[in-house]
Design a protein around this nucleic acid. Structure first.
Lengths: 217, 217
DNA sequence: GTCTATAAAGGGATAGAC
DNA sequence: GTCTATCCCTTTATAGAC
């Protein structure tokens, strides 16, 4: 799986940039990402990838040795790009726990329910039995990383005396889990549209439950 | 999807029992269930199903009109069989909320983490984009049904004055979601072994959080 | 490096004998 | 109803020209 991180033709001779964002390689990945995440691994043919990339199949195979390699590349990249979009978070002093958690909860749940996020989850869940390392690396980069970040928030709220949280990591898990709840299940199982009102309600319920459960004193 | 509930050859002429548990039909389903749930829909060939069932492909197609029909049958059956195993539940008067919820939580989480349950979830998540009805029927028979059942428990605990639960369905969702949490994610994404200690800890944390959040008075 | 054309294999589904 | 043998299509992957 680690060889999927290298281009097959970049052994030692190429003057070509390895990360050229406008090269054929990037062009292929961009097109393939949409197809794989929308249709899954099995239902997406290399023919379709070639057509969508405006490249012939021979060129496609010149860049990626096999369908598996291409898929691994895409999942890895989707994984890494994930949290960049959630960076602008209030990282400093916390005003009120309720305000803070509601803001974070909203962003987090909306991120969970984004089509790309759902598609990435779906892909990883589908393929992980056949490639366990993919599952593990995704879990660590995604859910695990997010949980640790959230645990930091709870630790700060505890230090500020706003919440009595004995185990920040456990609280972070509970917060994320309640946030997802039935909404996430419905979204990843069916293709139902989730309304804004449902999201707001889920966030509010989650925050209130956490506040009551971890109220100080 | 409803025609998948009937055998193609049992229109009106057959002396054969429709539910014969030893017939070829049951034999096929038994073998196919293992293959589909282990390998997923796309990776499981009808050849493999025929081999594993000790039946020819022609016979296989005499019983099931297509691969999709067979798969739908299996998911439906797995769904329905689900709750039978959890029937022996304390349905009467509730002693202590903590004891009761801990007992239920333990059974529920162990059920979630069973290989067959995980495989069923995985299959439905994978295939639902291509067959939405499958996803919807699974959700209603599985998670939705379980949530409503759990809401009944919370309603009884409220009526008994043990908990102050304004919205039993929401509490049931939170209970189930926290129960699953990171453990379920790890299990369905990777093939990690989850220890008994982790299960116990998750159940305890969930129950304590619910008890604190919904404490009366 | 990139294309067109094709090889090679596998899988879903069926025809026809018994 | 059940089997053997086969059709036909899709898909992965490559050969050879430019």
């Amino acid at each position: 799986m680690s060889e999927t991180l290298h281009r097959p033709a970049a052994e030692d001779a190429g003057p070509k940039l390895p990360d050229d964002p406008h090269g054929k390689r990037a062009q292929i990945i961009a097109a393939a990402t949409g197809l794989f995440l929308a249709g899954g691994f099995a239902a997406t043919s290399m023919d379709a990838v070639a057509r969508a990339s405006n490249v012939s199949k021979a060129t496609l195979y010149a860049y990626f040795a096999s369908k598996e390699v291409l898929f691994g590349e895409i999942v890895g990249q989707t994984c890494r790009a994930k949290w960049d979009l959630d960076e602008p978070m209030p990282a400093d002093a916390t005003p009120h726990a309720r305000t803070h958690l509601t803001l974070i909860g909203n962003r987090l749940l909306r991120f969970f329910l984004r089509p790309e996020t759902l598609a990435a989850f779906r892909s990883v869940i589908t393929e992980s039995p056949r490639s366990p390392e993919l599952g593990r690396s995704f879990y660590q980069a995604g859910p695990q990383g997010g949980m640790e970040w959230m645990a930091g928030i709870f630790a700060r709220l505890r230090d500020a005396g706003e919440l009595a949280v004995p185990d920040p990591l456990a609280a972070a898990d509970q917060f994320g889990a309640m946030l997802r709840g039935a909404l996430f299940l419905r979204a990843i199982i069916g293709q139902e549209t989730i309304t804004d009102a449902e999201i707001e309600a889920a966030v509010t319920r989650t925050v209130e439950t956490i506040l009551r459960a971890y109220a100080p004193g």
